[in-house]
Design a protein around this nucleic acid. Structure first.
Length: 267
DNA sequence: ATGGTCGGCTCCCGA
């Protein structure tokens, strides 16, 4: 049975509720993970998703900043909201669900962006980002026995050369510096995660999920980066049926600067 | 050429 999990940095779930509704209506993933909801839990538009058949919603929000949510057609349990680096930011949420009898742990992450200056000695936000991905190494795909695992989210790092529009021009730009890309790949290796999008897209092919608001013509310039990711435990790789990166959504009215992406698995 | 544009209990900060 095909199971589709999607992830989208929505940059305010209340402002862009119509876009989320459109995405769910047109693409109907089984589970959608949101980041940057920027919404206190008591104001989260839960009912709007329930009305669309997404009766199971978990949120980890805070006022004004960050915030993650899991919106699901399928029931889930064992909701965990982890904090990282001892900092009380709403950047993680995980749930346990069962798809056709197969237990599945799903992690939803919003990794700190890291500011502009890629030097942890002078930029606390960059230090926080490096510490955060260091701590992510302990989030593994094999943590629970007999349980498959998926990790999605805005990881704010484009690890490979073909994950950015210009590798050379971005080497000193936060999101593509070697200390970040190497750190993220170590976290992926330590957790025995497989990059499910790169399992579908040849490494030679450029893939982006984010285009800056600042470009005057984002589509013509096409200076994107692959900041959003879907990782899975190794057992899921042979079960991959398809993937989608909805670049069109960047051109929707009042868009997020990130687009939704998903994988479909045969579970 | 070091800009530019978003969103949020907004006149700055984080992205």
């Amino acid at each position: 049975m095909p199971f589709t999990v999607a992830t989208w940095n929505i940059n305010s779930v209340r402002l862009r509720l119509d876009l989320v509704q459109r995405y769910l209506g047109e693409h109907a993933p089984d589970v959608l993970c949101l980041q940057e909801t920027k919404c206190p839990d008591e104001l989260f538009p839960r009912e709007a998703f329930e009305a669309l058949g997404y009766g199971h919603v978990a949120i980890h929000g805070q006022k004004g900043y960050h915030g993650v949510a899991v919106i699901s057609k399928l029931p889930f349990g064992d909701v965990v909201r982890q904090t990282f680096c001892g900092i009380e930011h709403a950047r993680h949420l995980s749930v346990r669900l069962e798809v056709n009898g197969r237990p599945l742990r799903l992690h939803n992450f919003y990794v700190p962006a890291g500011g502009d200056e890629p030097d942890p000695a002078i930029n606390d936000k960059f230090k926080h980002k490096l510490d955060f991905i260091e701590e992510m190494r302990r989030v593994t795909s094999f943590a629970e026995p007999e349980t498959s695992a998926i990790l999605v989210g805005d990881l704010n790092i484009a690890p490979y050369e073909t994950d950015v529009w210009s590798h050379k021009q971005l080497l000193k730009i936060v999101s593509h510096t070697p200390v970040e890309t190497e750190g993220l790949l170590v976290a992926m290796q330590d957790g025995a995660w497989a990059d499910l999008i790169r399992a579908r897209v040849p490494m030679e092919e450029k893939v982006y999920t984010w285009w800056s608001y600042r470009a005057k013509d984002w589509l013509a310039a096409d200076k994107g980066r692959r900041l959003d990711h879907i990782w899975g435990s190794g057992d899921l790789v042979p079960r991959l049926l398809g993937h989608s990166i909805l670049k069109d959504a960047r051109g929707w009215d009042r868009p997020s600067d990130h687009v939704p992406l998903s994988v479909t698995l045969d579970l």
